[in-house]
Structure formats: structure tokens, C-alpha cells
Design a binder for these strands. Structure first.
Lengths: 214, 214
DNA sequence: CGATAATTTGACCGATTGGTAAAACATGGC
DNA sequence: GCCATGTTTTACCAATCGGTCAAATTATCG
């Protein structure tokens, strides 16, 4: 009898964990490139090098795979923002936040696109997480930024839109990679584009937030 | 006999044009919300208030509908950038470009999301348009910006990444609308958020591009 | 009116979808 | 060796997919 359906029991053998990891790896490839609805279990199974029923032995449904991926991404996605330190120097905090987000676009483009796909399509699976943990974290950090502005350490600005602009500019290089490459052309679309982007964005935000010298 | 398949002949009656318009309207709703692969002809047909075979009488395939939508969006999407005037004052040109792009996110969010969906999934249908017309236009305008920087009218910066950052920050409010609303919460997520965004972005870019006073 | 062309629809098709059943296979402890 | 547990595969299913077809319906026009 095959009662236990690996996914249901608490993870046991290392074999199970390895297989589940292989599936998630494959699913990340497929989901991030084609969206949830556009992806098929056959594609994921093939990418994971196993049969479809075997895949469904480790995850009960297509949604279960997607859900677990999204949960992971959401968690690691918030990490750089958490590191935002109220006691640090505003300039270096913002600068390193930009750099870290940009590094994530460079090193984890699939995760970024998975998340973007989800939001684009109305975030049907994670609306609660957005309105809950994400909002709370952003609220907290927005207050930090606002305090910096009040005490004259940076220019007065709307902290929420500042955060949005850092998110959008950095994630752009992962989510719109095809467009970026197409526009920059062959000679400029190498990995150096991330260096250029970092330089540009840091200057833009540093100047944009510097206290105007009176 | 039903020889003429409205889509194949040159458009004739006004009825045909109206029906095709209704289909494109409905398809924009569906495609922008669910992506190409995630959308079904039945959904589009229902949204357009007609049967599926009737829909296929006006467009031969699902792809044909999508293609026409994409072509339209691509065209109107380039419009604000085309208006970028080399002879204008840099400050007002950039400022009004930002404003115009932001207005498009506010007034045509579906079009923005349709485009975003396409790019996110690797732009399988429009790679040529990106590498051709889009790249050429951006190259041209990038040269304008570079000239402004050389002649000291704005700060020195990479013009391509400047354009990318304007694209990403403004389109963010359409493509990631759900997230923006969730983070801002009920009280702040009204239409006023576009005003706030405009104020923030204009200041950010104006300060970020201003010549540092020596 | 009648006739011809344009439009709309119900029934249907093969392919693919997410998912299941059950048997075959592997593995490890005794 | 044995049996029990865990894993994988073959065969299959109902539902849905994009799309076709022929018949029914509606406009158009003399």
C-alpha cells in the first residue's frame, strides 16, 4: 500500500527531500517562464526528470507546488528590506538596499519573475500575505524613512513611493530582462549591465534624496 | 455560403468593425488579467457576449487576436517617448515624459499589463519589434539625453538606464497595482496615489538629474 | 416579396489538461 | 529468504482546450 504520499507526512528520508527539491527547482523554471496557468504538470515533470504521476506523489496538486514556491520567494524577498536598519546612516542603508535588490534580480531572476507573474495576474494566491506581513514590514520601514526625513538626514519625500521606486527599478532588470537586452543590444547586454545599472541607480537615488544645499 | 471570414477581407461594414472592436475589448480584459496561455477563447467569447465559433468568424485564431492587441499597444506605448523633443528644455521634457507615462499607467492599466505579461514570458511574439523599432527609437532618444549631459544641461548619467528607470517606476503602478494597493492600504489606495506618485517621481528625477551645484 | 450574401450557432473533433487507480518495482529490517 | 513499507510506472479518466463544419438565422438589396 502506498498510503503516505510523501508530501503529506512530515518529511522523512533525505531521498524525499531531494526529490521535492528537484521538483521545486523544475517548477521554478517552468512557472517563472510561463505563469501558473500557462504551465503544465507534464512540463514540470519532464524538467524534473520524472513521470507526472511520480511528481504528484510528492505534491498533491499543481497548486501545492506553486504555493510552496511562492511562500519561499515571498520570504526571501522580504529579507533585504528587513535588513534596513533605523540606526544606520540613511545614505549607506538606502545604497546597500538598492545594491542588494539589484543583486537579487541578477542572481535570482526566476524568483523575481515568479513573483511578478503572480502580482500581475492579481495575486490570487497571496493577497493575504501582501496585506498582512508585507504591508506591516513596509509600514515599519516607511516610518524609519519618514523619521530620517523629519530629522533632516534626507530630503522630504513619500517613503512608500520611495520604496516602490526602488522595487520597480531593480526588479525591472529581472522581470523585463528580454526588453532590456533587446534595447541595449548585443554589445551592452552582457553581465556588465548590472554594474551600469547599479551605478546609475545609486547616483539617481543618492542625488534625489540628498538634502538640497541651501 | 459563408466565404468571407470577416477577418480575411479588408474591413467592410461598420458592423464588422464594431464586432471586432468588441472582441478586442474583451480580449484585452482577459489577456491582460491572465496572460496569453492562461486565457481561453471561451472566456473571451463570453466577455464579448458571443459564441466561440462566432468569435472565430472574426479572428481566425487565438493568436490573431493577441497579435493585433499587442501591435496596438506597442504602437501607443512608444508614443510618449516619440514626443521627447531634443530642442525642448531637458527639465520639462523629462518631467512631462514621466507624467505622460504615469498617466498611461493610470488610464490604460490593462494595456500595460498585457505588455508586461508578454515581456515577462520572454516576448515570444514581439522579439523582433523590440530589437527593431523599439531599440532604434530608444537609441535615438538616448543620444539626445547624452547630448544634454555633455553640454551640461543635466547631470552625467547613462541614458539607457535613465529610460529604464522611468519605464519601470511609472509602469509599476499599473503592473503591480495589487501590491501597491495592498501596501498602501485602503485609506491611501484611492486614485490620489497617482498624484503622490507623480510628485515623488518628478522630484526624484529632477533632483537626481540636476547638475550638482559646485 | 425573393434571392443572395453575411452572420450566428449547436454539435462535434482530436489533442491536451490536471489528476487517479492499481499494479509493478524497490528497499530495508528481520 | 520474507514481508511491510515506500516509490515509480502504465493505463486511464473526465474536463477543457483551440478549432471545424454544416446548418440555421439574419441582414442586404433589387
Amino acid at each position: 500500500m502506498a498510503i503516505p504520499r510523501a508530501a503529506q507526512t512530515q518529511r522523512r528520508t533525505r531521498i524525499q527531500e531531494e526529490k521535492q527539491e528537484r521538483i521545486l527547482e523544475a517548477a521554478l523554471d517552468v512557472f517563472s517562464a510561463r505563469g501558473f496557468r500557462g504551465s503544465t504538470l507534464d512540463q514540470i515533470a519532464e524538467a524534473a526528470g520524472m513521470s507526472k504521476p511520480n511528481l504528484l506523489y510528492y505534491f498533491r496538486t499543481k497548486e501545492a507546488i506553486h504555493r510552496q514556491l511562492i511562500d519561499r520567494v515571498l520570504f526571501t524577498w522580504l529579507d533585504p528590506l528587513k535588513a534596513f536598519d533605523a540606526d544606520g546612516r540613511p545614505e549607506s542603508e538606502i545604497r546597500s538596499y538598492i545594491r542588494r535588490k539589484l543583486e537579487m534580480s541578477r542572481d535570482f531572476p526566476r524568483e523575481s519573475r515568479l513573483f511578478a507573474n503572480e502580482i500581475l495576474q492579481g495575486a490570487p494566491h497571496i493577497e493575504d500575505e501582501l496585506k498582512g506581513p508585507l504591508k506591516e514590514l513596509v509600514d515599519e520601514k516607511a516610518e524609519v524613512i519618514r523619521a530620517w526625513a523629519r530629522s533632516g538626514k534626507i530630503a522630504k519625500c513619500d517613503p512608500y513611493h520611495l520604496i516602490f521606486s526602488i522595487w520597480s527599478t531593480t526588479q525591472h532588470y529581472a522581470d523585463f530582462d528580454v526588453q532590456v537586452r533587446a534595447v541595449l543590444g548585443q554589445n551592452l547586454s552582457g553581465e556588465g549591465r548590472f554594474e551600469d545599472a547599479a551605478r546609475f541607480l545609486e547616483e539617481l537615488f543618492m542625488r534625489g534624496l540628498a538634502i538640497p544645499k541651501t
